[in-house]
Design a protein around this nucleic acid. Structure first.
Lengths: 214, 214
DNA sequence: CGTGGGTTTGACTATACTCAACTACGGTGG
DNA sequence: CCACCGTAGTTGAGTATAGTCAAACCCACG
C-alpha cells in the first residue's frame, strides 16, 4: 500500500528544514505531530545515560516517522544530515482521530515501521560484523534503487551512526569495511561513498529486508 | 488504548487450541486471519535454511498477532506451549477492509507491535549476556504482573526459545543463568520456574567483581 | 519405569571490544 | 583558494566475552 498526500487531507502540514544534527523531537516528549522525510536522513535513536546510543532505524525519503500511538515519544529523532521534512500536525493519539482515510494510512505507516524494525532485528540476529555490514549496504542500496554491480552508494550518515545502528563498535565497523574491501566486495571512496563490486550478495542468504506485521 | 472484543465486531471468530509446537501459520503463507492469545505463549520466528531460528517476539495472553498488512506472512507463528487462541477471519490486506472501529484497533495493535520490537532491539543492543537475561526476566515479570521480591516466575518457553530470542547460544544462556544465580539475583527452580531475588534491577551496572561460587 | 531430547558442563577458539595513538577528512576563516 | 584546526575516522595491541564442539546429565514425556 502506497501513501499519497491525499491520505492526509485535513491535517495541517508544513515544511521543515533540519540541519545536520538537529533534533526533531526528544524522548518522552508529548507526540503532537508525525513527519515524512522529503530528502536527507533521520535517525530514530534512544540515548542511554552512559552516553551510548542505540539507533533503531534510519528514515529515508518517503518514510513516515513519529507515529507514537500512545502520545509519548519512545525514542528521539534527529537529522543525520541536512534534511527536508513535512510535518503533519495531529493531536495525540496520533492518527486515531483524523479522517477515515488517514486512519488507514496511519495503520499502513505503522505496519511499515514494524517491517523496518523486524528487518533490523533480522539483520543483526545471529550475524557477525561482516554480515551486518553486508546487510546494511544491501538495504541502503535497495533504498537508493541501486542493483547493478559497480554502483556508487551514498552514505547519508556517519560511521558512528552506522556503528550504533548495527550494534558494533566504530573500530569494528572500520576494520570490517577494510576486510570487505580486501575481499573485493566493496570499494571505500572517502567516508560517505562506497562502490559495490559484488552484486552476488548472500550473507548466508538471510533474505533481504524482512517485512511483517503484528 | 485498550482493545476490546467490540472493536472486532463483524469479524468471524472462533477458538483454537494449539498444542506445544503447533505451527499457527508459516512464512510466505497468505494472510487470511489474525489472532489473539488467550492463554499460553506464541513465538513469532523466522527459520533459516541453516537450521537456525530467529525469534522476533513472544506473544502472551492478550496480545494480538498475525497482522501482516501486505497479505503475506513474513514470519512463522508457533505455539511455544499449549495455548488457547482466538482466530479472527479477515481478508487481506488484514484490517484494512473491516469496520471503522476495527481499523483503529488494527492500527493500535500495530503500534503495540512496534513498541515490542523496539523494546526487543533495545534489550539486545549494546548489552552483554547478563543484561540480556536480566532484561528478558524483567520483561516477563512485568507481563506476569510480578513486581515484588522473591516472586516466582513461570517460563512459558524452552531455553532454546529464550536463547533464540536473546540471540545467544543455549550454552551461553545456561551459563549466564548460573552466574546470575551465584550473584543471588535469581534462583533456578527446574527448567521452567525462576525466583527473582533482587527487585533492584540495574541492568547497566557491570562494575562489581564477578564472583563465581565454584 | 524407561527412554530421548533438551539442558548443562567443560575445554578451547574466535570474534569483537577496549584503550590508546595516529591520520585524514571537512568545515571554516583568512 | 588555500591553510588551518577540530572532529571523525582509522589502525594497532591486548583482552574479554560469547561461540563452537563434544560429552554428560537430567528432566519430561510416553
Amino acid at each position: 500500500m502506497k501513501l499519497s498526500d491525499d491520505d492526509f487531507d485535513g491535517l495541517k502540514r508544513w515544511r521543515i528544514s533540519a540541519p545536520k544534527g538537529r533534533m526533531i523531537y526528544d524522548q518522552d516528549e508529548e507526540a503532537e505531530a508525525f513527519y515524512r522525510v522529503e530528502s536527507g536522513c533521520v535517525r530514530l535513536q534512544v540515548n542511554r545515560e552512559d552516553g551510548g546510543r542505540q539507533i533503531l532505524a534510519f528514515h529515508l525519503p518517503g518514510d513516515i516517522f513519529g507515529l507514537d500511538c500512545d502520545g509519548r515519544r519512545h525514542a528521539a529523532a534527529e537529522a543525520a544530515i541536512r534534511s527536508e521534512l513535512t510535518r503533519f500536525q495531529a493531536p495525540p493519539p496520533l492518527g486515531m482521530s483524523a479522517n477515515p482515510g488517514a486512519a488507514a494510512a496511519v495503520a499502513c505507516a505503522a505496519c511499515e515501521m514494524v517491517n523496518a524494525l523486524a528487518g533490523h532485528l533480522m539483520g543483526l540476529g545471529h550475524a557477525n560484523a561482516e554480515d551486518r555490514v553486508r546487510w546494511f549496504l544491501g538495504w541502503l542500496a535497495e533504498r537508493q534503487g541501486i542493483d547493478a554491480c559497480n554502483a556508487r552508494l551514498h552514505l547519508p550518515m556517519s560511521r558512528r551512526d552506522i556503528a550504533d545502528f548495527l550494534d558494533l563498535a566504530p573500530e569494528t565497523l572500520s576494520r570490517t569495511m577494510r576486510r570487505l574491501e580486501s575481499l573485493r566486495e566493496i570499494e571505500v571512496m572517502g567516508t560517505r561513498r562506497i562502490v559495490l563490486r559484488k552484486n552476488t550478495r548472500r550473507p548466508s542468504d538471510r533474505g533481504g529486508p524482512v517485512m511483517l506485521v503484528a
